[in-house]
Design a protein around this nucleic acid. Structure first.
Lengths: 223, 223
DNA sequence: CTAGTTTTGTAACGATCGTTTTACTATATA
DNA sequence: TATATAGTAAAACGATCGTTACAAAACTAG
C-alpha cells in the first residue's frame, strides 16, 4: 500500500455531476471540473481514468441518487392514484422551487439524449434504459392503482374488435390502452424536463397536466 | 461591383443546417462545415460572419422550411379532427421512414433546448418561441375541431365550481381543459422528437398515442 | 483594357481541448 | 527506519478549436 486518497469519491463525483448537469458533457472542460471538484487533473485522471470515465460515474450517481429515489414511490403498490400524484406533484414542486441560477435544472439524461446519445452508443443505451425504467415504473403504478382501463369505457373510439381477456385478466385492448396512458405520462415527464431550462412555468404546467389527467382517469374508473 | 458569389446561400445554409441538426452546434466544427458545404472558411466567414451567424441562419431556415410547413395543416381551420390527425400521422410517418444513418432525425430545436439554450439567452428565446408557436397551432386546431371540451364531460373530476360561460362561449374550466389537451399533444410531439434519436420505434409510438388520444376526444365529443 | 471591388484559397493565429509525462510527496507495510 | 506503493502537483504534450490576415484570383464597371 501507499498514500491514501485525501478526498471522498462520491462528493467529487457529485460535484462533477452537477457541472455536467448544468453545462453538458462537452461544454464542461477539465478546467471547469478541476474548479468544481477542487482537485487537479492528476487526481481526477488517477481516480477516473478519463473525462468520460468521470462522466460515467456522474451518470451512475445521478441514476442512483436522483432518478431512483423519485421512482420508488411509483413502485409502492398503492391501490389508488396517490403514488402517481405524489410523483408528479413532487417533481412539480422541485421544478417550481428551483433557484434561477441553480445547477440541476432539467434532467441530466434528457440533456444527454439530445447531445451525446445521438452518436455515442453507450450513452444511448443509458438514456434508453432510463426511459424504459421510467415507463416501467409508471405502468406498474397505473396498474396497481386500477388505472389500466378496460378499453372502450374511457374512449370508445379506440375499442378493438374481437378483444379477448387473458389469464392475467387484462385484455389486449386494455393493455394497449394502458400503454397509451403510460406513454402520455412518460411524455409529460420527459418534456417537462426538456422544457425546464427554457420555460420553468411551462414545465410545471406540464407536470400539473399529468396530475390532472391522473385525477380524471381515477374519477372515471370503476372503483 | 466585384466578383460574384459562386454559391447559392440557401443550399449552403441547408447543408450547414443538416450538419447542426445531426451533430449539434458545438460538435459541428468548421472543418465539418467546410466539408458539408463545400466551401472554405474564408467564404463562410465572408457570408455569415461567424460560426454562430451560420447557425442562426440554419435555425431560421429550419423554422421556415421544416417547422412552419408542418404546422400549416393545424391552421387549416378544419372542423373535425382531420388536421390534428394529419399532423401527427405525417410526423409519425416521417419518423418511421427515416433511414438509420439519416441526418435530420429528431428536431434541431429540441436538441438546442437541451444544449445551447441552457446558457445562451438568444437561443433560449428561439426555442421558447418555437414551443409557443407549436402550442398555439395545436390550440387553434383543437378549438376549430370542436375539441375544446366542456369541462366535466370527459373528466368530471377536473370540473370547477361556479364555472361561467364567457362571451366567446368557452367557459373558464373548458379553457383550462383545452390547455391541458394542448399540453398533452405538445408534450407528445416534443418528447417524440427527443426520443427519436434514442429509440425510433418508441418515438413513433408516442406520436401514435397522440393520434389515438385525438380520436378518443373526437368520439366522445358532442358533435 | 484598366481600375476597382469582392470573393476565395492558404496559412497562420492564439486559445483551449483532453491527455500524458515527470517528478515529488506522503503513507502503509515490513 | 527502510522500502515499496500510491496520490498529488506542475508542466508540457499534440490536436483541434474558431477566427483572422494576407494575397491571388475573378469579375464588374468605366
Amino acid at each position: 500500500m501507499g498514500r491514501l486518497q485525501t478526498f471522498d469519491n462520491t462528493v467529487v463525483v457529485q460535484a462533477a455531476r452537477d457541472l455536467f448537469w448544468n453545462k453538458g458533457y462537452e461544454a464542461a472542460s477539465l478546467a471547469d471540473l478541476e474548479a468544481a471538484t477542487g482537485l487537479g487533473r492528476s487526481s481526477l485522471y488517477h481516480a477516473f481514468g478519463s473525462k468520460r470515465g468521470l462522466f460515467d460515474a456522474a451518470v451512475a450517481d445521478y441514476l442512483e441518487t436522483v432518478i431512483r429515489p423519485r421512482l420508488t414511490v411509483l413502485r409502492s403498490g398503492a391501490t389508488d392514484a396517490s403514488a402517481l400524484l405524489e410523483y408528479f406533484d413532487s417533481l412539480a414542486r422541485s421544478t417550481a422551487n428551483l433557484a434561477d441560477d441553480s445547477l440541476r435544472s432539467g434532467c441530466l439524461l434528457v440533456n444527454c439524449a439530445a447531445g451525446l446519445a445521438a452518436h455515442d452508443d453507450p450513452a444511448r443505451a443509458v438514456v434508453e434504459s432510463y426511459r424504459s425504467e421510467l415507463t416501467g415504473a409508471l405502468r406498474l403504478a397505473l396498474a396497481s392503482a386500477g388505472l389500466a382501463p378496460a378499453a372502450g369505457t374511457a374512449g370508445g373510439a379506440a375499442a378493438a374488435k374481437g378483444d379477448v381477456a387473458h389469464r392475467d385478466g387484462v385484455s389486449d385492448a386494455a393493455k394497449s390502452s394502458l400503454d397509451e396512458r403510460v406513454r402520455t405520462l412518460a411524455s409529460l415527464s420527459m418534456s417537462a424536463m426538456l422544457v425546464a431550462r427554457v420555460n420553468r412555468n411551462e414545465a410545471v404546467a406540464l407536470l400539473n397536466t399529468a396530475s390532472n389527467q391522473i385525477r380524471v382517469w381515477f374519477a372515471n374508473s370503476d372503483r
